[in-house]
């Protein structure tokens, strides 16, 4: 009961955050000095034409009305223009790219499997690597194992992903020829090809992202090993490995859960650099394209999508917490 109330509260909070994000997006993008109507009007563009384009795109209304239309479109869909030239954008309508002549929702839906494949695979990998190396470093505190792992993680934290990506491509793809330098095969069509194309991006992303996990996990494990309950567990005759796996790991992983939710959420919203380096057409590339072409509708749509993912990830983390740690539902 208390857990349910806690979850309901969190969901309410998440909805509020998303509403604030939408407001912020509109304020930012619609006060930018660029005019989407001007851009899609083409050249030469007469004043008369511009007015018609504006009306068609709904840009003739004040910004708050535009925002209202946008929010309504999220739930009910919307139609741009009237008659034969009308463009339908079905719910949930995240906007319509007049440059690509496609609803933003469709664009995102097309690209999401690519990004999700990269993000989920890499996340699983870096979580395993990070937690394992962190616990190992803690247990071997002060030895060469600890020093090596900490050195590597410092290297990982300070390496830019595009650099590591390019180095990996030049080694494994160009020199050794073991793996492709880029591209993507849908899982549904060619599972083998899907895996083959994803191994390199996964490893690159995992190596870089695992580094902070290693450090946090090491610190947490050392801290938990000092707790009284660890001594209690030992006093029962538990082997040290069990003490770690049954008692320490669960307590030490609490901050990791938070970090992981945020990292995964934001990565699902577009792995811009990785997608660029490995030439994969994910949401990150869609976003990059939109920025390069000032396609505001796509920009707003993908940003909102990414923000919602982060909020959702947070929500999932909060709910996970309430199951991992029985004390959290007590706080307020």
């Amino acid at each position: 009961m208390r857990t349910l109330r806690y979850i309901a509260k969190r969901i309410g909070g998440a909805i509020l955050v998303i509403a604030v994000i939408i407001l912020a997006l509109f304020l930012i993008f619609y006060t930018l000095p660029s005019d989407p109507a001007q851009l899609s009007c083409g050249r030469p563009c007469s004043a008369d034409q511009l007015t018609r384009v504006k009306a068609f795109m709904g840009l003739d209304k004040p910004w708050y009305q535009q925002m209202g239309d946008y929010v309504a479109g999220l739930f009910a869909g919307r139609t741009f223009g009237t008659g034969a030239t009308a463009v339908v954008c079905a719910a949930p309508c995240l906007g319509y790219s007049f440059r690509l002549s496609e609803p933003v929702t469709t664009l995102i839906a097309d690209r999401f499997p690519v990004t999700a494949s990269i993000a989920l695979g890499a996340a699983v990998l870096w979580l395993i690597v990070g937690v394992f190396t962190g616990v190992l470093a803690a247990r071997k505190q002060g030895t060469w194992v600890d020093d090596t792992l900490m050195g590597l993680s410092a290297l990982g934290i300070s390496s830019p992903s595009y650099l590591v990506g390019l180095l990996a491509i030049s080694l494994f793809a160009l020199n050794l020829g073991w793996l492709p330098s880029g591209g993507y095969e849908p899982l549904t069509q060619d599972p083998g090809g899907w895996l083959y194309h994803l191994i390199l991006p996964w490893i690159v992303l995992a190596l870089i992202n695992a580094a902070p996990y290693t450090r946090i996990m090491r610190t947490q494990t050392l801290q938990e090993l000092d707790q009284d309950y660890v001594r209690t567990a030992r006093s029962k005759g538990m082997p040290e490995g069990r003490v770690i796996s049954r008692h320490v790991l669960r307590n030490a992983s609490l901050p990791i859960v938070t970090l992981f939710g945020l990292d995964l959420g934001s990565l699902l919203g577009g792995a811009v650099l990785t997608e660029r380096v490995f030439s994969m057409q994910g949401i990150g590339m869609l976003l990059l394209d939109a920025v390069n072409n000032l396609d505001l509708q796509v920009l707003v749509g993908t940003t909102l999508f990414a923000a919602v993912l982060v909020v959702l990830a947070n929500l999932v983390v909060d709910i996970c917490y309430s199951f991992i740690d029985p004390r959290v539902t007590l706080a307020r």
Partner: peptide, 22 residues
Amino acid sequence: QVIRGGRIGTIFQEPMTAFNPL
């Protein structure tokens, strides 16, 4: 592993922290 818990049981000062909170 035989001694701890099997031959010698131990109880500690702070019962609140001596149990795993989770």
